[in-house]
């Protein structure tokens, strides 16, 4: 518990990091959202569908418009509404589409027959933006860890960027090792997944089939979680001890994770629990009102950014807790 509380204190001291990281995320996403808005406006001009899409969702208009989309516009879909966005994104992760479709084949993803032959599951532009976002957040992580390393948490933007640039190369190497590890996880998981799928097909009842199917995805999630744990501690170690070797830092991170597995897992559970509560709150709020006019749309936008800011905060809380845990367990350098 102490590292978690310590992590919370650290985060509170450096709360400005949250909007900074969120801004990086927002700027990238806007690059695709704005052209989409232009395209939608052009298509809805002088139509009744504009009124219906303002008040709610016009399935007829969306169905026809969507069938013409070959780019990122096809991701505007009712299955991203409510809780759907979370389920869809998690589905993409577990099917190996992130990042950049790197693990889709390993995960055994079949060509999508149900997208009318429009191409890959995720638009290449979206995947590319994902990679850019990953690199940008990785870049900032170095600076964030540098801030967390500081005793009182005082920092400047210049210092943050300097720290980011300073650790950038090593963090990229750690990230590559993490991706390799994730690839190994997918490769090892794929035959187990096929086995679970065949057991699911042979199941007597649908419940048994569901259990097999959920179990295989849960196993994958846990395995990817362990890879993240090792990678995250590797970054912590790399910055706190100013290690030069990314490989050794990764090995140390993995070793530390195993040695303090219980406490490390507790941190993840805490984050997942809070995240679950956040998601529940979001779904409730989203269901409560339908943005129509610009004022309610602005409210939606602010609430959405608040949700995302909370997600970023959770990520930083986890990182800060890991710093605290490492400091507590490893002692002063």
């Amino acid at each position: 518990m102490r590292p978690l509380l310590e992590g919370l204190r650290t985060l509170r001291r450096s709360l400005v990091l949250v909007p900074l990281l969120l801004a990086a995320n927002l700027v990238l996403a806007v690059l695709l959202a704005v052209p989409l808005a232009v395209s939608i406006e052009r298509d809805l001009e002088n139509t009744d569908a504009a009124a219906r899409m303002t008040r709610g969702f016009d399935y007829d208009w969306w169905s026809e418009w969507s069938s013409r989309q070959t780019g990122h516009g096809r991701h505007l879909s009712p299955d991203t509404l409510g809780l759907g966005f979370a389920a869809k994104n998690l589905d993409l992760l577990l099917k190996g589409h992130l990042p950049a479709g790197a693990f889709a084949r390993l995960a055994g993803a079949r060509p999508r027959a149900d997208n009318g032959g429009k191409g890959p599951e995720v638009d290449p532009l979206v995947l590319g933006l994902g990679v850019v976002s990953m690199l940008v957040q990785l870049f900032l992580t170095g600076g964030v860890l540098g801030v967390f390393r500081g005793a009182q948490g005082r920092w400047t933007v210049r210092g943050l960027l300097f720290g980011s640039a300073f650790y950038w190369g090593r963090l990229v190497r750690v990230a590559l090792l993490a991706l390799l590890s994730a690839g190994l996880v997918f490769a090892l998981w794929a035959p187990l997944s096929r086995l679970a799928e065949s057991w699911a097909r042979e199941s007597v009842s649908e419940w048994s089939a569901l259990l097999w199917s959920f179990a295989r995805y849960a196993l994958l999630l846990v395995a990817l979680g362990l890879v993240h744990m090792a990678s995250s501690f590797a970054k912590v170690i790399l910055v706190l001890e100013n290690r030069t070797s990314a490989v050794l830092a990764f090995v140390s991170g993995a070793s530390f994770s195993l040695r303090y597995l219980g406490r490390a897992v507790l941190q993840y559970l805490a984050v997942v629990l809070v995240g679950g509560g956040l998601l529940t709150a979001w779904v409730a709020v989203d269901a409560a009102f339908e943005p129509t006019g610009y004022r309610t749309q602005l409210l939606f936008l602010l609430l959405a950014q608040a949700f995302l800011g909370a997600r970023v905060a959770l990520r930083l809380w986890l990182l800060a807790s890991q710093v605290a845990l490492y400091r507590t367990a490893a002692g002063p350098p």
Partner: peptide
């Protein structure tokens, strides 16, 4: 108005996807 509303929805989904990265 409809375009801003639904592109904001798309933005939200995409931001969450990027954060997942």
């Amino acid at each position: 108005r409809a375009a801003t509303k639904w592109s904001a929805r798309f933005l939200f989904w995409l931001q969450n996807l990027l954060e997942l990265h």
